[in-house]
């Protein structure tokens, strides 16, 4: 599969009263044609900033540098503002967490969809009305004419998110960036929106970047997963590699903090400590002070990236050949057993 997006050594710095904030620190990431890549991490880990840098929609005072920022065969950094706007508007589409703040509250939903259709397809009159209704129907909303006549606040959260997805897809984009699109929804609605995104992806041959902190959703939707921590990607691999053969202690922590409804533990697992202050350029591994597996070197030198397969990369000193033997948590060992069983079946990818 060819790469539709290539990001090399992306750095994003924001000015701040207390000194610069190093929000993204050397991110390398590619999106393959037709895949769903999940970008996972806690608030402030740089997930949204990474994609906003790609789209060129960061605040003006943000300092963005990259060795490569490529969409298909075009270097996004060398494009004029006008050409970039054209690509953003049609090729790369963004769906936000909160559709209520992304939609115009004073304009009927049909009119808002119509504006986008006018821009992309130059439709008018009856044809425009028919096209608006068709777009609403395409995201599985019943009674399109009624939905079109409503204001955003008159729709439910799930309906609004469907309208947002419909609007994002009108320009027939090649890439859909979904930034926590289900976080504000109930589980049943969440499942429906995930299904809708999957269906639209197939129908329109989309490549998807899905931003979330919820590993349950990732397991449902992702082909590949990139785990971000403090502005860096600390582990990336196929969904099976991340869920059944995770190597970075931060990935272990994230997996362990998902509650298990089959298990009646008194206390839920939590990562100790708090994420680092992004004003500091960290010496060593930024995760070191929260990492029960940290070695002395974690506090002194930046960890190397180890490649475990064609798709699996980990940035941790644990995988250095000189590291003494260690045992991951029991919960993670269980996941590794699943991975070995999958490998035996020959279906681990």
């Amino acid at each position: 599969m060819s790469d539709i997006i290539k990001i090399k050594n992306l750095q994003v710095t924001f000015p701040d009263e207390a000194g610069p904030i190093y929000a993204v620190r050397g991110v390398n990431l590619n999106l393959k044609h037709g895949e769903t890549l999940a970008l996972v991490g806690e608030s402030g880990s740089g997930k949204s900033v990474t994609t906003h840098a790609l789209l060129g929609i960061l605040p003006k005072d943000a300092e963005v540098t990259a060795d490569q920022l490529q969409f298909e065969h075009q270097d996004l950094q060398s494009l004029s503002e006008k050409d970039l706007t054209l690509i953003r508007g049609s090729q790369l589409a963004l769906v936000f967490q909160d559709p209520l703040s992304a939609l115009n509250p004073t304009m009927r939903v049909g009119k808002q969809i119509g504006e986008v259709l006018k821009y992309h397809e130059h439709l008018h009159g009856k044809k425009l009305i028919a096209a608006v209704n068709a777009e609403i129907k395409a995201v599985d909303l019943d009674n399109p004419a009624l939905i079109a006549s409503k204001f955003p606040h008159e729709l439910s959260g799930g309906q609004r998110q469907r309208v947002m997805i419909a609007m994002a897809l009108i320009g027939q984009p090649k890439v859909l960036i979904a930034d926590e699109p289900t976080t504000a929804l109930d589980v049943t609605l969440q499942a429906q929106i995930l299904d809708l995104i999957q269906a639209q992806k197939q129908k329109h041959d989309l490549s998807v970047i899905f931003i979330t902190h919820d590993l349950g959703i990732v397991a449902n939707i992702a082909d590949r997963v990139a785990i971000m921590y403090a502005g860096e990607i600390v582990e990336v691999g196929t969904a099976n590699e991340i869920f059944y053969y995770p190597q970075h202690p931060y990935t272990w922590g994230l997996l362990d903090s998902v509650p298990d409804t089959d298990d009646d533990q008194e206390q839920l697992f939590t990562l100790p400590g708090t994420p680092p202050d992004l004003h500091q350029k960290s010496k060593g591994d930024p995760f070191a002070n929260r990492n029960p597996y940290a070695l002395t070197i974690d506090f002194e030198a930046t960890p190397p990236v180890t490649q475990l397969s064609a798709t699996h990369f980990v940035k941790s000193w644990l995988l250095d050949p000189r590291t003494p033997a260690y045992e991951p948590p029991v919960s993670i060992q269980k996941r590794w057993q699943t991975y070995r069983a999958l490998a035996k079946e020959g279906t681990h990818d």
Partner: peptide
Amino acid sequence: YHHPLHPYTKALLSAVPHADPIYEQHKRI
């Protein structure tokens, strides 16, 4: 949780995502 009786409870429980791709691939909502 383990013995839901009403169809609405069953639907709610069936939609809870698990951090397990194999489970997610096979789950029926």
